[in-house]
């Protein structure tokens, strides 16, 4: 058995070491696979803030993932065609610059989370699950039926967006960029968890009425967590879109929400590095089982069922032998 802190260090180190070695030996595919892990882990870290710390079972995080993806798609498609998004009443041009795209994705994701959260948080429990699911689907159907940005066919971006001083077309450089972002967000989440806000949020999950009696607003705490969570997932969406240079309504589909949730659960709910290890496992399984059988999702389903029924606390829970991720 090892302590969770050491396990986290190990995961972070491995996640960096494996692609760097792969790049050294010219295994570019592995680098891309690792970038996928990092980006999806980031989406999971976003969800984990709402799900693990806040106890908000959102089955609609694909909405934010997709919003981030489309923020990138819309800005970059205008950027690559030199065709402004708006000319009236003031000029808004597209862009191919990653920092700008990320900022837009984070703001758009945060605002969507604010709107969805403000409505959904009026309810709780199973209503909340279904409502977030339904709002996610609303974005999905909107993306399908709105033809300006590709509709059902999605939108291709020909060249990956740029970051000042880096050549993002190099897989290892793009990986490094995503990895740094992931670690930065993980540090942010660790700080948040230890801050007064994080502690209050933790208390809300355990007993909202008690938090209310000491004069804090559970709704406001939950909404804040939901907005930060949505913004992080949107950032992951923008990175994911840039990785595949393609956005499509699939990013909004509820299977995406389900998969992001699987990352969190596989790793362990409420654990800082849970989504990271969950995303690693998921991508590795997809890769290996996908090679063994065309019907790999069947085995994924069986495995997931096994984890839910018999291995509560996820992989980190099993490795560190602690029941629950949250204190």
């Amino acid at each position: 058995m090892i302590a969770e802190k050491h396990l986290n260090w190990l995961i972070a180190a491995l996640l960096l070491a494996v692609p760097v070695c792969a790049w050294w030996f010219g295994e570019i595919y592995t680098v891309t696979l690792a970038t996928r892990v990092v980006v999806l882990a980031l989406a999971g870290v976003g969800l984990n803030l709402a799900l693990g710390a806040g106890g908000l079972v959102s089955l609609g995080h694909a909405a934010f993932f997709g919003v981030g993806g489309y923020a990138m798609g819309i800005l970059a498609s205008h950027g690559q065609n030199y065709d402004p998004i708006l000319t009236e009443p003031f000029l808004i041009e597209g862009t191919k610059s990653m920092p700008v795209i990320w900022l837009v994705a984070i703001i758009a994701g945060g605002l969507s989370a604010l709107a969805i959260g403000a409505l959904s948080l009026r309810t709780s429990g199973v209503y909340f699950i279904m409502i977030t699911l339904a709002f996610g689907q609303m974005f999905y159907y909107f993306a399908i039926s709105w033809p300006a940005y590709g509709g059902e066919d999605g939108l291709s971006i020909y060249v990956r967006n740029g970051f000042p001083g880096l050549n993002t077309l190099q897989p290892i450089q793009y990986f490094a960029l995503c990895y740094v972002l992931l670690i930065a967000v993980l540090l942010l989440c660790a700080r948040l968890g230890a801050s007064p806000f994080g502690l209050a949020l933790n208390a809300v999950r355990q007993s909202a009425p008690r938090v209310e009696t000491v004069g804090l607003s559970p709704l406001r705490l939950r909404l804040t967590a939901f907005v930060i969570s949505g913004a992080i997932t949107a950032l992951a969406g923008a990175l994911f879109a840039d990785l595949s240079r393609f956005v499509s309504p699939t990013m909004f589909s509820w299977h995406t929400s389900g998969e992001i949730m699987i990352f969190v659960i596989l790793g362990g709910v409420g654990r800082l590095y849970g989504p990271v290890i969950g995303a690693c496992l998921f991508i590795l399984l997809e890769h290996w089982l996908g090679g063994v059988s065309e019907y790999w999702q069947l085995f994924l389903g069986l495995l997931l069922l096994g984890v839910v029924l018999f291995a509560r606390g996820g992989v980190i829970g099993v490795l560190t032998r602690k029941e629950a991720g949250h204190g």
Binding site: V57, I262, G301, L305, V308
Partner: peptide
């Protein structure tokens, strides 16, 4: 809790669909 129910039944969907 509902989270476990969501996940287990999501797993069932994967199993049924692929099956």
């Amino acid at each position: 809790d509902h989270l476990d129910q969501v996940l287990a039944t999501f797993a069932l969907i994967l199993i049924f669909s692929e099956g």
